[in-house]
Amino acid sequence: MLLNQFLLLAAVLFAIGVYGVIARRNGVAVLMSIELILNAVNINLIAFSAMNNSVAGQVFALFVIAIAAAEVGVGLAIVLVIYRTHHSIDLDRVDSMKG
């Protein structure tokens, strides 16, 4: 297998995730797009771990997974509070701090 086939797959997932973060306006959907980006990074880490015969990439992927779990927990709590105060999770309407 080529190293590049994994890296290009990760690049496609990353670009789709970036598109989702910009185009989506539902808070939960934006968080899902961020998960796509984090997964693309994990695929890169594991591919380079296999390429260099080192477990360091796998250890970093595990850390990324743990941090993603923390991020989703806090992110969904914030979305919940936005829903409670704005009665909607449309991120375009969260503009109270706009000058």
Binding site: M1, L2, L3, N4, L7, L8, A11, V18, Y19, M51
Partner: peptide
């Protein structure tokens, strides 16, 4: 804007990856 950003990013990443790693095989 989102489509343009995504496509540009994919193009840039693909170009860089192919340019850097070419046909490198995994062990």
């Amino acid at each position: 804007g989102a489509v343009v950003t995504g496509v540009l990013m994919l193009g840039l990443l693909s170009f860089t990856l192919i340019d850097t790693f070419g046909n490198d095989r995994l062990p």
